[in-house]
């Protein structure tokens, strides 16, 4: 498997990264280099192997349904690049 610069453009779109043609060319080449290295994995037969998504094998932690309000909501808003009243503002979506 090798990726074309068209594939790279699609991936950049999915990842919401605006890349120049030069960057795209460089990343395409580097990704191919890394993926080529990753082809090692193809040699491994893993059909009967279970994946390890986490090294822990317990169940997830559960929290009691209790409300505890965060005290610095104003602080969270202060980090906003653009805020009106108590809302974050984004430019038009469509």
């Amino acid at each position: 498997m090798s990726i074309s610069s068209e594939d790279a453009r699609h991936v950049a779109g999915l990842a919401r990264l605006e890349l120049t043609d030069k960057e795209l060319r460089a990343y395409t080449e580097q990704l191919n280099q890394i993926l080529n290295y990753a082809r090692e994995l193809e040699k491994l037969h893993t059909d009967n192997i279970e994946p390890t998504y986490s090294s822990l094998n317990t169940g997830t932690l559960l929290r009691e349904d209790k409300v505890c309000n965060f005290t610095d909501q104003a602080g969270l808003l202060e980090n906003g690049p653009e805020v009106a009243g108590s809302s974050f503002v984004v430019p038009r979506i469509l």
Binding site: R63, E64, V67, N69, F70, Q73, L77
Partner: peptide, 30 residues
């Protein structure tokens, strides 16, 4: 642990977790 109350002023039921602050982690409500 933020409240689910409906109809409150914008962004008054928020915390690091539900605003996606870097480093905040989810814990499931039983």
């Amino acid at each position: 642990a933020c409240s689910t109350e409906f109809g409150r002023p914008p962004n008054s039921n928020i915390c690091p977790v539900c605003t996606g602050q870097p480093g905040a982690l989810p814990v499931l409500n039983k």
